[in-house]
């Protein structure tokens, strides 16, 4: 029998109806039920949430920070995607 730890889980909490689940931290648990229970006990002690997702940390794939320039910077120059790029006469109040 391995003396090793339970797997690591990432915890996401929805703080109220209408909002996204947001990453709040991680914890150890042997299985998914326990991960939900532990997340409830660790991360919602002060009414921080109404819904919990848990994901095995090993199932999270992350983009490589060293590729950040090619992944994210090209969109910086596409300023026409933002409404402030366009001129609208002052008389028009809502657009």
């Amino acid at each position: 029998m391995s003396n090793k730890e339970w797997p690591l889980w990432e915890v996401f909490i929805r703080s109220k109806q209408g909002l996204n689940h947001k990453h709040v931290g991680s914890l150890r648990a042997a299985d998914e039920e326990m991960a939900i229970d532990n997340a409830r006990d660790v991360y919602t002690r002060r009414s921080e949430g109404i819904s919990i997702w848990v994901v095995l940390s090993s199932n999270v794939f992350a983009s490589d920070p060293s590729e950040a320039p090619e992944l994210y910077e090209p969109s910086d120059s596409k300023i026409y995607r933002h409404p402030t790029f366009y001129d609208v006469p002052d008389e028009i109040q809502h657009m």
């Binding site: 914890l27 150890r28 648990a29 326990m34 532990n38 006990d41 660790v42 002690r45």
Partner: peptide, 11 residues
Amino acid sequence: PILEEDIAMTN
């Protein structure tokens, strides 16, 4: 027996 369970039992 583990931190998470310590917190659970205290709750």
